[in-house]
Design a protein around this nucleic acid. Structure first.
Lengths: 334, 334
DNA sequence: TTGTAAGCGTTATCAC
DNA sequence: GTGATAACGCTTACAA
């Protein structure tokens, strides 16, 4: 593998001159530039980045820590990050952790070891203390799934308000017994959405029924499990509010396996507004998150941090909105 | 940011000793080890990877070049890669190109500049010449979407045989006018599948009808477009074979918008066996690709190449299989 | 305009 | 066991 020395030797100049050509300095004679470029071509030389970054102490790479990319939600956020990164000359690299702390730690080490200039967490297994400490020493931003109380810049939606809006809408459509499929204590977003759910019931004077809470998770199979349990209730709910589109579809799929028709017999509402929400039959009424914008903004904040680690933390909430489709119908009151 | 020198100074030893401790050499006195470890902790020191990799000329990182991660197909392949990588002490980083040659070039530069030890392409915009040249100088493997004639290790399924099997099955079910939704010249896999499609027709003595070929692409919307065009035909086909599950679902969705019932009025077959194939209503009869295994094997081949760039190229075909679900029914012959 | 040489943070090879 | 020191490939003062 050719190095800068080989190029210098072949071109009959010093390594410094080669370096100048590589970095487009304008104080090199035209002929010299040509000679160097010729040598570079001849040797098919590519500057070793490690040398440069070691010297400059910057990699122009950012790391995006995601739990999974099977979920389209994250892939759209990543696209936003990538777009913002590219615009500033950075490259986004994706690290998939499967929410495994050991794997996550390995990737965080990459940041600590300066293999990347900064890190965006779309989900982390770290607690507030660890995350705050990390963010104090290394450029980092937390997004999507936040860690409460952590000292770090964040970008997300207002999950409480979003769930409040969603359940209000269901109630406006005449639904009263509203089941809630959520992801439990591990996910702060799910907790906030549960608070929004409760608040909506409360303001409408509807009772909170613990038996209508299904702590199953965000996945399709979580929705299926919830639906199975739901079918065993003495009385079917009017509507189901799931904290993800995947779970909502799992619910619909399982219910229809049992001969129930979503819309007619029961309404189902999702969360995220993934592509599948639009494409499913019936199409899914859901809460839309501005996934691309979340990623874009998170990356902007990160680059700010990279340029000035001491800059103030910002906590940004982006607007959500309800997407009205076909899986929720007005309840015909008997 | 603390460096190895700071640790050495604080522990009252040389940098060499610190390095020995860091790398678990056993020729360091116990007390010295303790002193160094204490200093490391105290300074919250993390070895800068660039220094090490510069010295060792290896990064233990591999790059996975994907066109998109919105497609679940790729995310499963990536999971296979990651698993195999981790088992050998490597980390997989994902680079999303959106099939943009400029973006892809930037990431390839990372490989050329030694920021990663090797590269797996799940799709590339390079032609055979460029790809072969790259693979000759840098450890690389091509997978999923191959480049015909390129000199490089590959892992994929037998796309010709898979399509042949699929269309044979449709014909066995009594279908004769079989539409084909494909992705055109840009994708070698699609071309091979078209050849399989034609071969199946031919061996059954059925005529090839160019008007039943819909060159629209792999996406949901491609399926929709195909279905729209298909509805304008003077006579509806008996079945549709799409080269991806997404496209198949697009077809179903559009047909049902027009009041047609898949299974009853027309059969639809997909390709890939993504999660959605199982979850959609109706569930999708499709060709299953061993996505995880493809990724796993590709990574194994890459690591072989990293360890010995001169090792023989291997071209591996993994087995596909038909997944029988509900979107294809036997044709009732009138 | 160009070359010399120091230095980035490690590891490896010698000595001792 | 441990410490100097050269080296990895590159950039950048400083000198010439």
């Amino acid at each position: 593998m050719a190095t800068i020395k080989d190029v210098a030797k072949l071109a009959g100049v010093s390594v410094a001159t080669v370096s100048r050509v590589l970095n487009d300095y304008d104080n090199v004679r035209g002929e010299t530039v040509q000679a160097v470029k010729k040598a570079i071509k001849e040797l098919d030389y590519h500057p070793n980045f490690l040398g440069r970054t070691l010297r400059r102490l910057e990699t122009t790479k950012i790391l995006v820590v995601v739990p999974t990319i099977s979920n389209q939600f994250y892939s759209r956020v990543v696209k936003g990050i990538q777009t913002a990164a590219l615009a500033e000359g950075y490259h986004a690299m994706i690290a998939i952790t499967n929410s495994d702390p050991v794997v996550e730690k390995e990737f965080i080490d990459m940041a600590k070891r300066k293999l990347v200039d900064g890190t965006i967490f779309l989900h982390t297994t770290m607690d507030a203390g660890k995350l705050s400490k990390f963010a104090a020493s290394y450029p980092a931003v937390s997004s999507c799934e936040l860690v409460p109380e952590a000292d770090i810049s964040t970008v997300s939606i207002d999950n409480f308000q979003a769930a409040l809006d969603a359940v209000r809408f269901l109630i406006e459509q005449g639904h009263q017994r509203i089941a809630f499929v959520c992801a439990g204590e591990l996910y702060h977003s799910s907790q906030l959405r549960e608070k929004g759910y409760r608040a909506a019931l409360e303001e409408a004077g509807l009772p909170f029924r613990p038996e209508l809470i299904f702590n199953e998770g965000f996945t399709f199979n979580a929705g299926r499990r919830a639906a199975k349990r739901l079918l065993e209730l003495p009385e079917l709910p009017d509507a189901v509010f799931a904290t993800s589109d995947s779970a909502a579809i799992g619910v619909i799929s399982e219910l229809s396996n049992h001969g129930l028709h979503v819309c007619e017999d029961i309404s189902v509402m999702g969360f995220d507004n993934n592509q599948i929400a639009e494409y499913y039959l019936p199409s899914l009424t859901t809460v839309s998150q501005p996934q691309f914008d979340i990623g874009h903004k998170a990356c902007e904040l990160l680059i700010k941090k990279i340029r000035d680690l001491a800059c103030e933390n910002e906590c940004i909430l982006l607007p959500h909105k309800l997407e009205y489709r076909n899986s929720v119908k007005k309840r015909r009151v008997l």
